[in-house]
């Protein structure tokens, strides 16, 4: 009897486990399908080419050109990555090859807390610090007029948010470089920096590339913090100190009116679809870069 009860228990929970498995495989397909389904209407009426490359944004007239938003997203993302890349690389190298164990133990919570701070807090901080810094200091420095709400501010806030994310991956990657290779280079008379440059960075190059690809996909979808500092003005920005309007901000700002204007909801779901496709693309890319380059080495 007892044995039978155990068997039944095993059946039931085993069944639940299988159900969960199915759910996990269906979920990404479900997300893709639902966004495709909702944005089908606008893709039919406007055509994907026009949606992606037209700059005319007049929802009331039924004209939806996403070009300004796509450009803003690209600008903010690239800027954020460029600013964050050297900081992450240098810190990761320092922590793995120069710093003491004590420093690593001290830095772990620092990185973890930075990673845990919600994006809305980064947004508040950005409004308080980055906006005046950009408007009063950076823009005049480069000879521009700006309120501070700009692509530049978005890039800066994004760069800061990306630091813990990319840094964690990089540290992980540098740890996998065999110490023997590093020591071999040192014993040939190379300095520490030369050994890092020629051996460590070279060896972990695929990892570094994929870390930044992952960072890029994270940056592309970041919503609230960027929204709060980027200005949200529709139009193709001419320089980095003009406001921009990235895709996630567009979706977040307009969810209220979404259902009151015809086709608007379909348009916003199309924006979400673009985000999904780009993000998944770069995730896959980072995976394949690793596999490909590791095979070659």
């Amino acid at each position: 009897m007892y044995l039978k009860a155990r068997k039944i228990k095993d059946r039931i929970s085993g069944g639940w486990v299988q159900l969960v498995l199915v759910f996990v495989f269906v979920l990404p397909l479900g997300i893709l399908a639902s966004l495709l389904y909702k944005s089908w209407l606008i893709m039919q009426t406007t055509g994907i080419g026009d949606l992606l490359f037209s700059s005319v944004w007049r929802p009331l007239a039924g004209e939806f050109g996403f070009f300004p938003f796509i450009i803003s997203s690209i600008w903010v993302t690239i800027l954020g990555l460029l600013i964050t890349a050297p900081i992450c690389l240098f810190t990761a190298i320092y922590l793995t090859y120069y710093g003491s164990n004590r420093l690593s133990v001290f830095m772990r919570p620092v990185i973890d807390i930075l990673a845990g701070i919600p994006s809305v807090i980064y947004g508040v901080w950005g409004v308080l610090i980055i906006i005046p810094f950009t408007g009063r200091f950076l823009a005049p420095l480069f000879g521009y007029e700006s309120t501070g709400f700009s692509i530049m501010a978005g890039g800066l806030v994004l760069a800061i948010m990306l630091i813990p994310f990319i840094l964690n991956i990089l540290i992980e990657i540098f740890r996998t470089v065999p110490v023997e290779q590093y020591e071999a280079s040192l014993s040939l008379g190379a300095t520490q920096w030369e050994s890092i440059k020629h051996v460590v960075v070279r060896r972990s190059f695929p990892g570094i590339v994929s870390a930044f690809a992952l960072g890029l996909s994270r940056a592309f979808g970041e919503t609230i913090a960027v929204l709060m500092v980027v200005g949200n003005v529709v139009g193709v920005p001419e320089n980095l100190f003009q406001p921009g309007y990235p895709l996630p901000a567009l979706i977040a700002n307009n969810y209220g009116e979404m259902l009151s204007i015809p086709m608007f909801d379909s348009a916003l779901m199309f924006a979400a679809l673009i985000l999904l496709v780009v993000v998944v693309f770069f995730n896959l890319l980072s995976r394949f870069v690793i596999i490909y380059l590791e095979k070659r080495q």
Binding site: V24, P28, L35, A272, L276, V279
Partner: peptide, 25 residues
């Protein structure tokens, strides 16, 4: 490995897309 792959994929999807998905559902 397939499960880990799908999870990595889901992990990378930004929360605004989850929001939009939740909304359509």
């Amino acid at each position: 490995n397939a499960i880990r792959f799908v999870l990595d994929l889901l992990w990378g999807i930004p929360s605004i897309v989850y929001g939009a998905f939740g909304f359509t559902i």
